[in-house]
Structure formats: structure tokens, C-alpha cells
Design a protein around this nucleic acid. Structure first.
Length: 420
DNA sequence: TCTGGGGTCCTAGGACCC
DNA sequence: TCTGGGGTCCTAGGACCC
């Protein structure tokens, strides 16, 4: 017997998240100006070379300001733009508060990012007979309790719900059920489709595919041939075909951990590069131990001042979660690939995880795992309890470098990235 | 003071084995 | 007298998302 279950999915997206949250908080603190009503952006620190637009207000969008572009450019487009620095601890709080409200309505929630969640209301007609009314209730709750607006997209799969929430903003509810595809989604430009990015869009235009409808009705054979598996994916999406589950976020297994940083100055010597790498290893390996995993692949990435990016990775014979081991591999990889040209950005990534509940000793290894493991554990505990700055390796003293590097640039924010 | 940081997935090519 | 071919693993890089 095959049961056809009709699903009901909401995608809820905080409007201009960082900016709205910043605006709501500032009003709460007594500030007069509502950032949402003027051309404004949340942007990184230009002095330390993090000067890009993180979020823009709707009035800023009218000046053609895009997320990710330089603040320098944004100012050129709109000289009066208000630029405020980010406060990540605040955004984490807002995100959690929003998701806490969602939990009052359904336990089936997937936090897709800091400002977006999928909510599954399938087979809950007895509880919520009118989904439009339900969406309005949730939307108003957030506005009243938390002071910011959201868009809600409703459909019977995640893709369409997500596309729907991206329709007219802010503070709106939209549906996009399969029978509405032709009217609501097919006229949209191909760039509006999930998984069509800046590399794929021009290639599609070359095939004279300009709208989502053009793609939905194109010859699948040609798409498969030209875009391989990606062709099938975007063809399905254009036709509204997508069936992934709303997965509760705490059951999603983590595949990799990485931290990277743009250094405030150009690095031109090995000693400084190693120090930056060590501080990245400290952050990455603490997150790894916190996730109760060991890794078997370690990689280093480098971006030069020419912005050219390259990386080297190594598969390990023995899985590890040791800061020292990971740092050793990282230095080995770095020393083998770096030819001495100035460095702007460095990264450390680890993948291919396995469970950390035993350690396989190598006969050739002189490394004292027991001792190292105890040391890592103690240092982790101190940092969790008293903050990342509480204990650090002496080489960072007077170095001008942070002892734990990567993440969101606020030293004392505890393990934000492992919460999401 | 022009270009962040955190992820996931896929592909192509080379090494190596049978 | 001319280099098969399938499979797996590893690596580097690129695409996409937020």
C-alpha cells in the first residue's frame, strides 16, 4: 500500500537579518534612528581588511548595494550610507529567540542558517486547520515579542517554500504550491533559482535560458550533458521537484570543520605564518574535540595578495583530535606549498571524521597520546569556563595575533559556530 | 582602507591494483 | 610493433549556499 502524504512546509526568513536585529536592539537601547528606514549596512572592519557589506537595508538595496561588496564601493554608490559594525553575539541571541518561538508551534524544525528555518506542519490539520492563519500568527508573534519582521513561504516541499519566502519583502506571507508554479515562479529570472549561482547563470543565458520557466521546459539531455549532475538538480528545481526531509538540526552529522582568517597585514615570513596557523589549529581542534570526533584529513589553504587561492591536504594514517598533531601536519603542508609570496588569508580545515572513543596507536609513533590528550582536555575546559583568552600559548604574547583565530571575530563569544 | 567566513557537494586527473 | 580497462583512493579545485 502506498500512502500519498501531502506535506506542508514553512520557510521562515528574517528580513535583512543582521540589520533588522541591529535596528531592533538599537531602538530598544533608546536610539532614535531606525536603521531599516534609511540606506544602511552592517559591515566588517575596514582597518583589519574585513570591509565588506554583511547585510543591507531595503532602502540601501535601492542604491544597488549588494551583500558581499566592499564598503568602499557601497560608499561610492551612496555617500550617506550608514555603516554599523556587526555584533554576532546579538545575532545568535535573536536567532535562538526566533527558533524558540517556532518550537511552540512544531517540533519539526530545521535551522537552515542563522536567519532561516524550515518548519514542517505535515499531518497537523487537526491542530492548525488554516495554514495562512497559522503563518500570520507566527509572523505577528515575532514582530510583537522580538521587534523584527519575517517572510514566510508556504508549500509542500522545502525548495518551493524557500523560493516563496523570497518573494516581495518585508513582513509577507506567500504560498507557492505546484499548481502556482507556472504563474508565480516560471516568469522569474534564472538567477532567482536556488543553486543557480554566478557561474551557472551566464552559461544558461548562453543557451537562451533566461527565466526559470525556460529552464523547466528545456531539453534535459542537453542540460545533463553540459552541467552533469548539477543539470538534473536545477532542472528538477525549476519544475518544483524536491523531496528532502525537514531534518532536525541536532541530528545532522557534521562533515567538516574549518576556520580561516584574513590577516590584518600581509604575512611575508614563515614564523608569522606558522603562528597564524597555530591559532587557527587551536580553534579548529577545540571544535573537533567538542564534537567528539577525530579527523583523518587535514588541509591548509592560502590566499595571496593577488587573491589567488590554493590549498594542500593530507590523509592521515591514524585519526586524531590533537591540536599538536594537526598543527604538525598543517606546518608540513604549508612549508611544502608556500613559495614565499605575501599572504593575505590563511585557513585550516579538517574532514573525514570518525568517532573519538578510542585511539589507535602507531608502533612507529613516539607521540604520547595520553599526556597530550589530557593537556588538550584541561585547556578546553578552562577556555569553555573562562573564555578563549583565559589561557594561551606563550608565543602569542606581544605578537599582535590572537591565540585562537577564526570564526566571527569576537574573541569572547563562546563556540558560536558549533551551536549552529 | 577594494575584495569575509562558515559550510556541503561534485568532478577531473593521477596513482595504483588486479 | 604499439600500450586494455575497471575499480578505488587521494588530491586540488570549483560550484553552490548562508
Amino acid at each position: 500500500m502506498i500512502y500519498v502524504v501531502s506535506r506542508l512546509i514553512f520557510h521562515i526568513d528574517a528580513n535583512s537579518a543582521y540589520l533588522s536585529w541591529e535596528a531592533a536592539y538599537r531602538l530598544q537601547q533608546g536610539e532614535q534612528l531606525d536603521l531599516r528606514l534609511v540606506p544602511s549596512v552592517v559591515g566588517g572592519d575596514e582597518k583589519s581588511r574585513h570591509g565588506i557589506v554583511l547585510t543591507k537595508s531595503i532602502p540601501a538595496k535601492k542604491f544597488n548595494i549588494h551583500t558581499g561588496e566592499t564598503l568602499y564601493n557601497a560608499r561610492a554608490k551612496c555617500p550617506n550610507i550608514v555603516i554599523v559594525p556587526p555584533r554576532y553575539w546579538l545575532y545568535m541571541k535573536c536567532s535562538s529567540a526566533m527558533n524558540k518561538i517556532f518550537q511552540e508551534y512544531t517540533p519539526q524544525i530545521q535551522r537552515f542558517s542563522v536567519d532561516e528555518s524550515f518548519l514542517d506542519f505535515s499531518n497537523m490539520e487537526h491542530l492548525y486547520s488554516d495554514y495562512m492563519k497559522l503563518a500570520a500568527t507566527i509572523k505577528e508573534r515575532i514582530k510583537k515579542d522580538l521587534g523584527f519582521t519575517v517572510n514566510i513561504g508556504i508549500s509542500n516541499n522545502k525548495l518551493l517554500a524557500k523560493v516563496a519566502s523570497d518573494f516581495k519583502k518585508p513582513d509577507r506571507i506567500h504560498t507557492l504550491f505546484p499548481h502556482e508554479l507556472e504563474k508565480k515562479m516560471w516568469p522569474l529570472p534564472i538567477e532567482d533559482l536556488f543553486m543557480v549561482g554566478r557561474a551557472t547563470a551566464p552559461k544558461l543565458h548562453n543557451l537562451n535560458i533566461n527565466t526559470i520557466g525556460d529552464l523547466a521546459n528545456y531539453d534535459l539531455k542537453i542540460l545533463n550533458n553540459k552541467f552533469k549532475s548539477h543539470g538534473q538538480v536545477i532542472y528538477n528545481y525549476a519544475n518544483g521537484i524536491e523531496s528532502s526531509e525537514v531534518r532536525k538540526s541536532n541530528y545532522i552529522e557534521i562533515k567538516g570543520i574549518g576556520n580561516s582568517t584574513t590577516i590584518p597585514f600581509d604575512v611575508e615570513d614563515k614564523v608569522t605564518a606558522h603562528k597564524v596557523l597555530l591559532s587557527l589549529c587551536e580553534t579548529v581542534s577545540m571544535r573537533l574535540r567538542n564534537s567528539q570526533n577525530c579527523c583523518t584529513v587535514v588541509s591548509v589553504s592560502i590566499r595571496g595578495i593577488d587573491m589567488i587561492f590554493y590549498s594542500r591536504q593530507k590523509k592521515l594514517i591514524v585519526a586524531t583530535d590533537s591540536t599538536r598533531k594537526i598543527y604538525e601536519i598543517v606546518c608540513y603542508l604549508f612549508d611544502n606549498v608556500w613559495k614565499g609570496s605575501p599572504i593575505r588569508h590563511l585557513g585550516v580545515h579538517i574532514t573525514d571524521f570518525c568517532c573519538n572513543d578510542f585511539y589507535q596507536c602507531s608502533l612507529l609513533d613516539t607521540f604520547n597520546y595520553e599526556k597530550d590528550s589530557k593537556l588538550n582536555k584541561v585547556v578546553d575546559e578552562i577556555r569553555l569556563k573562562y573564555g578563549h583568552k583565559a589561557i594561551s600559548k606563550s608565543c602569542f604574547i606581544h605578537s599582535g595575533l590572537s591565540a585562537m583565530c577564526g570564526g566571527i571575530g569576537e574573541d569572547d563569544y563562546p563556540l558560536m559556530s558549533s551551536i549552529l
